[in-house]
């Protein structure tokens, strides 16, 4: 059996430190999720609406956020704002801002897609029954859109959790950064620690994301 460097995990506080790093990653992503889902719903409704100016502005926002790699956004908010505006954002705050901007954009596109996917005939049969526009929206369109949306938005949550692995680049000590520190500290005594520690990181991300994916799959099946 080759030396996988697993023993490093059980040295001192290493496991606790890794879990703490995961906690930081989860905290940032969950705060961002909590803000970007309601905001995304609001923008998505506007994007599916009729106001062309609002739609054009939101489209530009969505495209910019989509085209830019998240890492570039992180650098802009962490380093860029310090140079230009003299803001001294902490790494965590910059990360939360970027994740909110990104999550809101993605969520709004999911909401827009779900809303426009409701066939015209659903509106028409509601109209033909004498329901008002508002009643059609709340009793026919929204319930169907939500059913489509929940699995997709849950997948967005797991994507956001995984993408927090980038924030070590702006100095936030999250799970991957802790892993690097542990590996560095044990370079001499356990040269194979890289394997064991990164394996542990993989398992931790899996434990965080798998139940969420399962939930999405379950809801998708239930409502199909």
């Amino acid at each position: 059996m080759p030396d996988l460097g697993l023993e490093v995990l059980f040295k001192g506080q290493n496991m606790v430190r890794l879990l703490g790093g995961l906690g930081v990653a989860l905290k940032i992503s969950l705060i961002a999720v909590g803000v970007s889902i309601p905001l995304g719903i609001l923008l998505g409704i506007l994007m599916a609406g009729k106001n062309r100016v609002v739609k054009a502005i939101l489209r530009v926002y969505l495209e910019i956020i989509r085209i830019m790699p998240q890492l570039v956004l992180l650098f802009i908010f962490f380093f860029g704002t310090t140079r230009i505006f003299g803001w001294d954002l902490s790494g965590e705050l910059a990360a939360i801002i970027v994740f909110i901007l990104w999550g809101t954009a993605e969520m709004s596109d999911l909401v827009r897609g779900a809303l426009i996917s409701i066939p015209k005939h659903q509106y028409e049969s509601g109209e033909a029954l004498g329901l008002s526009g508002r009643q059609i929206y709340f009793f026919i369109v929204v319930p169907q859109a939500v059913r489509q949306l929940i699995p997709l938005s849950i997948n967005l949550v797991t994507r956001m959790i995984k993408t927090t692995s980038l924030i070590l680049m702006i100095g936030v000590v999250e799970v991957l950064k802790v892993a690097q520190q542990i590996i560095e500290a044990n370079r001499m005594v356990s040269p194979n620690a890289a394997f064991g520690v990164y394996l542990a990181v993989l398992v931790l991300y899996f434990i965080a994301c798998w139940p969420i994916s399962m939930l999405a799959g379950y809801l998708e099946k239930k409502w199909r």
């Binding site: 005939h121 659903q122 028409e124 049969s125 509601g126 033909a128 029954l129 004498g130 329901l131 008002s132 009643q135 009793f139 026919i140 319930p143 169907q144 059913r147 409502w223």
Partner: peptide
């Protein structure tokens, strides 16, 4: 003026009974 369409256009998220009672209860 009631209308019935070629493609039925029932509301997929509601039971048959709720499909029928939605408009009488909400609109009327």
């Amino acid at each position: 003026i009631g209308m019935v369409f070629q493609s039925y256009d029932l509301f997929p998220h509601l039971t048959v009974l709720k499909n029928i009672t939605l408009a009488p209860m909400k609109a009327q």
